[in-house]
Amino acid sequence: MTGRALVIVDHQAGVVGQGQLGLVAQARAVRETVEALLFGAPSAEAVELLGRCGVSTVHLASSEALNVPVAQPRVEVLIDLLRREEFDVVLLENSSLVADVAAAAAVRLDAGVNWDLAALEMRDGSLVGTRMAVQDTVVVEVGWSGLPALAVFRAGQLGPVPPAEPLVPTTRDVDVELSPSASAVRVIRGADSALAMTGLDTADIIVSGGRGLGGPENIALLEDLADVLGGVVGVSMPVVDKGWYPYSHQVGQTGRTVRPKLYIACGISGAMQHRVGMSRSGTIVAINTDPRAPVFGFCDFGVVGDLTEVVPRLAALLRADVRA
C-alpha cells in the first residue's frame, strides 16, 4: 500500500462536512499517506480536524478567486498540484461544483473518473470502487486504468470517521498563477447563505413530504410532526418545483442525499430519483394512499392512508406521550 492519496476539501468557516472527512477514512483504507487540498481561507480549525482523521499534509489554496463557488479556479489549482506532486488517487465528495471540477480535471489529466461511489478498497494490488445501482439492489464494482484515479463519492454517503492515529499536519501554501479562464464565470449575485443551514445532512430524523401533500398549506403538518420528533423537514422535487418549499430541502438525485436514523415519507411515491437520496436511512416509514406506490417496496413500515389524517394524529399522540 504505497503511494499517496489526495482528498479535496472545501470548508465553510472552519467546518468540514462529515462526508469530506469520510473521504479521509476511505483514502486511509487504500493508501499509506493521505494529504488534503483545502480550498478557502486558511483555517487552523479545519487543518486540526483533518489531522485528527489522519491527514499528514494539508495544501492550502486560498486565493481570492476561490472564495466564489466556481469550478475553473479550483481545476487549475488541482491540476497544478497534481503536476508537481505525485498522487495516485484523488477523492472527492460529489456536489454541483465538485462534479464540474472532477470532469475538467479528468480531461486535463487524461485520467479516469468513477462517480457515484460508496466505498474504495484494494484488491490484488488494484484499486476497486463500489457503487450501488438499480435502486440500490445491486453493487457494481469499478476500476481504473492509468493514474491518477479520480474517485467521486455520492454525496451524503460517507458517515462518521473511525478514529485514526492523530497527526499534526504539515501545511503548505499552494500559490498558483491563475489563467484568464479562471475568472471567465462571474458570480453576479451570491446565494442566500441562510438556505444552506437546513440541517438535513446531519438530522437524525427527517419528515418528508411529496406531491401527495396536495398544497403548500399541508407543509405545516410535516413541520409539526418534525417538531415533536426533533427532526427536520425534507421534500420531493415536485414540492420544490411548485414553489411550496425551498430547494435546499429537496431530497434526491438533484437534491441532498441524506442518511438519518428515521425517514418518514408522506405522500411520496418513491421514484428512483427520490429513492437514491434517502435509501441509506436507518428506518424508512411511508404514508401513502396508494397501496401500489413503489415506496411500499422499500420501506420498513408502511401505512396505506391519508397523510392529512395520519400525520396530525401521530403528532398529537406523540405530543401527549411527551406530556404524560
Binding site: V139, V142, S145, V303
Partner: peptide
C-alpha cells in the same frame, strides 16, 4: 480509463410491515 469489474446483488431490507 474506467472499467466495470463486476456486479453482485445486495441483500434487500429486512421484513416489512404494511398496514391499512
Amino acid at each position: 480509463r474506467t472499467t466495470v469489474l463486476g456486479i453482485r446483488e445486495t441483500s434487500p431490507r429486512g421484513t416489512r410491515t404494511i398496514i391499512r
